[in-house]
């Protein structure tokens, strides 16, 4: 049994310790907001926070995540109240298909915690998620809007 703390709740899971965290979150625990896009830490769809840091959960084993504070997209909104980032996303109509957006929002939320007023250069460096629909123009606008909110 491995103990995980996700969005403040603890879960014990009976899986091999080398299972990628992504699949434990999705299939074992059943929280599907965190997405699979590549499985090789390239696309960022699976981004979660590990002790506050944006982390691609397909590239981390569940064994390594044990005992750490894990936050998924489901853990952002507090009792249905959207975070500033989520609100900016709604305000600027960012998502198209939306599939990459959980990961995008997690990456952006971590960035804003570290740099509350990021420059375009900061954004370029920190946000390396793939979005095949191509929402980047709105993503950038919404990041700046969230920083101002």
């Amino acid at each position: 049994m491995i103990n995980l703390t996700i969005n403040g709740k603890s879960h014990s899971v009976d899986v091999e310790p080398d299972t990628p965290l992504l699949w434990v979150i999705r299939d074992t625990i059943g929280m599907t907001g965190t997405k699979y896009g590549c499985g090789i830490a390239q696309c960022g769809s699976c981004t979660v926070h590990i002790d506050g840091a944006a982390t691609r959960s397909c590239g981390m084993t569940v064994g390594d995540a044990a005992g750490k504070k894990i936050t998924t997209i489901e853990g952002l909104a507090d009792n249905g109240v959207l975070t500033k980032v989520q609100q900016a996303w709604v305000e600027h109509d960012v998502p198209q298909c939306g599939y990459c957006q959980s990961g995008m929002i997690m990456a952006v939320s971590a960035l804003l915690k570290e740099k509350p007023k990021p420059t375009d250069a900061d954004i370029n460096e920190a946000i390396t998620n793939i979005c095949r629909c191509g929402t980047f123009q709105q993503v950038r606008l919404a990041i700046h809007a969230a920083a101002k909110a």
């Binding site: 907001g33 997209i73 989520q86 709604v90 109509d93 939306g98 599939y99």
Partner: peptide
């Protein structure tokens, strides 16, 4: 007008095929 399907795409609630249980 804004899209009708945005909020769930920001909270992880939107259900895609991969999420069917």
């Amino acid at each position: 007008v804004k899209r009708l399907d945005t909020v769930d795409k920001t909270t992880g609630k939107m259900m895609y095929g991969i999420d069917v249980k």
